[in-house]
Design a protein around this nucleic acid. Structure first.
Lengths: 363, 363
DNA sequence: CTGTTAGCGCCTTCAG
DNA sequence: CTGAAGGCGCTAACAG
């Protein structure tokens, strides 16, 4: 059993070379002879020296080799949600080949004073902040770190680098499909528009001030289209739910359709909501689309499988774009003396999937 | 605009207190007066000091606040595979409330010399190694780091902390169900048993030496049960495929059933394989289970949905157990002078789901 | 409750 | 191609 070298310095001492030389053996192979390098690496292996300590290295180089993703929801929810799993897959893809890993940072809604400790303490080179409300404390904490930050989806009104879709424009084809089929009495179902819980009807006038920009954009986009078709947006019933599990969505459909039995169509801002409508319709004996037209948003696999008329957004591509953008910002920071002044902003395309849940109204 | 304090020391200097005091304001609130603490925190906020630098802190405390997960496959595959997504969800759950994040470390099969750099450079407190072949280079690299390592699923024959199921025992109820229904001519379909690609028939005698312990265990468990029922394991046809996508699985079913048309049942070591059999049976006009009985393994959602007779394993619980076990090892390392000598080993329970794809053979 | 003293292990000049 | 020196920013231990 050979003595154990636990640091670069001790290994250097044992071999009778300088620390630099050992360091170079790992990091700058062209700075020493191949023979010496081999000898050093072999000696290291023999003594169980695992190579330069990553922490010390990071401290010195100011580079970690990890990018953080802030997922606001309880982290294990993120793995149950198809969209965020796809997003993570995209980020993983973006880092493939890079010398960076992805660090998942749970940033739950628990408003402990130190809710931001995880992001404050995370050992990463930058953050991707995935879909949080404007004014989110974790986002603020990430910015406070003075590291590159890329925002994904929301908030959409900051000066930070951004990757997302144009929700307001993206939903219009769905609204248009309903209008073109001849619908005039259309209700809207949306997931929460604000961080604060508020289930039930929301006046159209309140939508503008909502702090969850994604849902706000979708509702506004639909209203834009309705308005353009001569429908008074103030007369469009809008129902929201804070949680988007199946029972909530069905209940939202019930609330909307029992209070407004004259509706011939429901536009939903998420596929989950649309499923709620489909389920409620089935439970109450209505046929879709003969008795009721429905549109969704997101284009999750199950929606396409079920033939839902919906808007497909590229979740994986978003993840990849966000990952790459952050990586570029990190690299630029090392290279440039002065960071470039234009903030990257990438808007990805969406597509409307016609599906089979829109048809002309019965009467 | 106030001067910017970029380090703890500079902030301390500007405030005329010692660095310790500032450090304590962040880390040991009970070591100074609330008033002073407030004053320090306020001054920090005013100057944009983001708090103690995480890298320097980690370097000093030898603690990062992140645990690494090694997923051998190309990382974005991991997000397409239900089992590994559930596993990650479990890990996320285990770290919830802990001051640890999860770092995903892609450890693709690219056997570059430095394939292990990511794991060699990862700034983490320990590793969970998820389902790799025995002798995997990334596992070796993780061990070389002298950090706590927890193995999940495989390899199962090391002295490392382990979380998994007893694959060999777990599959026996599926085999037994087929035997009890009266089947005697049963084929086996398995995903790759070795890292090296080898599609097609595998002699039962070769299974023992397979380096992918999970699949090996399942095949051996089935053979155990067959043997106990008086069937010569040497006569049981075993077909493998390296890749488990749908076409491969269907093709495996074709290969098995065309060469052995007398089989009345197929035992599969994964649900994906069983789907391949179901699809092939449907395509060739056989009814399951009337004409052919089929069992799977894993218990993915879709399998249960489809009524497959299969073994359900608790993927999320595995992730949670692995995460917690690693966390404990990390904490113990800080506390204990001498690490405890018994290596934790946790075997989780599986359940056989009867489903509806097993019935007595026709003749 | 506050301050002083020592490094943590490495990489990067810069000089041979 | 190699070596010596300095410091990255912080916290643990101890002493006031």
């Amino acid at each position: 059993m050979v003595k154990r070298a636990r640091t670069l310095a001790s290994l250097a001492a044992e071999l009778g070379v300088s620390r630099t030389t050992v360091s170079n053996a790992y990091n700058q192979p062209d700075q020493l002879s191949a023979a010496l390098r081999e000898k050093i690496l072999a000696a290291a292996a023999a003594r169980g020296y695992p190579g330069p300590d990553p922490m010390a290295r990071s401290m010195r180089t100011r580079r970690v080799g990890a990018i953080g993703v802030l997922l606001t929801e309880h982290l294990s929810y993120a793995f149950e949600d198809v969209a965020s799993v796809d997003f993570l897959a995209g980020m993983a893809e973006a880092t493939y080949g890079t010398d960076s890993a992805v660090t998942l940072i749970p940033a739950g809604p628990d408003a402990r004073d130190d809710a931001s400790t995880l992001v404050g303490r995370a050992v990463v080179d930058g953050f991707v902040v995935y879909s949080v409300a404007s004014g989110d404390a974790h986002l603020a904490a990430a910015q406070a770190r003075h590291l590159p930050v890329v925002l994904c989806d929301q908030p959409s009104d900051t000066d930070l680098p951004f990757v997302g879709i144009d929700d307001r424009a993206a939903i219009r084809p769905a609204a248009r499909a309903l209008l073109e089929a001849g619908h005039r009495r259309i209700g809207i179902l949306s997931i929460r528009l604000t961080r604060l819980r508020r289930d039930g009807f929301v006046p159209a006038a309140d939508v503008d001030g909502a702090d969850l920009h994604v849902q706000r954009g979708r509702v506004l986009g639909a209203l834009d289209e309705f308005t353009a078709a001569g429908i008074d947006p103030g007369q469009v019933p809008i129902v929201t739910r804070h949680i988007n599990d199946q029972p909530s969505c069905v209940d939202a459909a019930r609330e909307l359709l029992t209070t407004h039995p004259d509706l011939t169509a429901v536009l939903c801002t998420t596929d989950s909501m649309a499923f709620g409508v489909l389920d409620y319709a089935a439970a109450t004996g209505r046929t879709v689309p003969a008795d009721l037209s429905v549109t969704g948003f997101d284009g999750v696999r199950y929606a396409l499988h079920r033939g839902l008329s919906t808007v497909i957004q590229p979740n994986k591509a978003k993840g990849a774009a966000a990952g790459r953008m952050l990586q570029e910002l990190i690299d630029a920071r090392v290279t440039d003396t002065e960071p470039s002044l234009d903030v990257p902003r990438r808007i990805l395309r969406t597509t409307y999937h016609a599906g089979s849940t829109v048809a002309p109204p019965r009467n």
